[in-house]
């Protein structure tokens, strides 16, 4: 009993010190018995308080077992921004070492310091641009959103000009009383938070470098095998009547009756292959082709 009280006091002291240093930037939750359970804080690189120069961040979550500090706390890194998996794994390893070294003493502030040092050293996004899926090379112009997501300025400009155009097209279709009064609002492609940016300025950026040097795609053996497997499955399901016959279904919808013989003769047992391929948006309705556009199906049937 006395031991646990003492432990508790040591923890209490550590937490008070943390609150004094970090103030609103730390949150501590307590369990029903009033013991501290979970400590959370978001850590940024040290950039002399220049928030626009912080390109990475991560939230540290520390769970305190009852025996802490005489055992290691449970540490989780959440919501990493601008950090790839290898950077995070490296951080976890350093955290583990630090905790093991410090059993018996308060370690939370040490952890915060360690993470902040690491972030400061790698204060450039190591993740990929979510739009083109390529990384950030030196000289690439990139944009950090307010929600800490990263894009090549070129890619973000592309996304924003297209969503803005779509928004405008939708607005133009609406009667005056239904039109939005707010105008176009840009959102982050990753988390959909509202973002503020100057599309015209982003548009002046050059395409990312890695993108230009990317390797070409080749058809591999694995790919051939998979294609073959797809063909087999298609034929098998076709023989069981399991393949949707668009033409027949559409005719049903139109309430036109067709003899089953006719339907059967227009079917092909071949995988139809690209039926969506030659088509542009206007002829697609919710992703399905209008009858007149499905030339390949027609071709197959006339082949027979």
């Amino acid at each position: 009993m006395e031991m646990s009280l003492k432990t508790n006091e040591r923890v209490q002291e550590e937490l008070e010190a943390l609150e004094a240093i970090l103030m609103d930037d730390i949150s501590i939750s307590y369990n029903e018995r009033g013991c501290p359970e979970l400590i959370k804080t978001t850590i940024f690189p040290s950039t002399a308080n220049e928030v626009d120069k912080q390109y990475v961040c991560v939230t540290l979550e520390v769970k305190l077992p009852e025996e802490y500090p005489d055992c290691e706390p449970l540490v989780q890194l959440r919501n990493p921004r601008g950090l790839d998996d290898s950077t995070i794994n490296h951080l976890y390893k350093s955290i583990k070492d630090k905790c093991a070294e410090n059993v018996g003493q308060p370690v939370i502030f040490e952890l915060i310091d360690l993470i902040r040092e690491n972030l400061t050293e790698s204060n450039l996004p190591t993740c990929q641009c979510a739009v083109c899926l390529y990384g950030f090379s030196e000289g690439d112009s990139f944009t950090k959103t307010q929600c800490f997501h990263y894009f090549h300025s070129y890619c973000l400009a592309n996304h924003l000009s297209i969503t803005k155009r779509h928004f405008q097209e939708e607005q133009d279709k609406l009667p005056a009383w239904q039109k939005s009064t707010k105008g176009f609002q840009a959102t982050c492609p990753v988390c959909r938070e509202m973002i503020e940016c100057d599309i015209d300025e982003l548009k002046t950026a050059h395409p990312p470098k890695e993108l230009e040097s990317a390797q070409k795609f080749e058809v591999t053996n694995d790919l051939r095998l998979l294609q073959e497997r797809m063909r087999q499955l298609f034929s098998y399901q076709k023989s069981k009547g399991g393949i949707i016959d668009i033409e027949a279904e559409e005719n049903k919808l139109l309430l036109i009756t067709q003899s089953s013989e006719e339907t059967a003769s227009s079917e092909s047992t071949e995988d139809p292959g690209p039926s969506l391929s030659n088509l542009n948006d206007p002829v697609l309705e919710n992703g399905v082709l209008k009858k007149s556009q499905r030339c390949d199906v027609k071709m197959n049937s006339s082949d027979r």
């Binding site: 739009v131 592309n158 996304h159 297209i162 969503t163 797809m230 499955l233 298609f234 399901q237 009547g241 399991g242 393949i243 949707i244 690209p274 039926s275 969506l276 391929s277 088509l279 542009n280 948006d281 697609l284 992703g287 399905v288």
Partner: peptide, 24 residues
Amino acid sequence: LFKLELFLPEDYPMSAPKVRFITK
């Protein structure tokens, strides 16, 4: 095992892929 077809339109990834089930 459900067969589907997926098509990436000209302005992908700025527009969504078109996807459809082929198996009933």
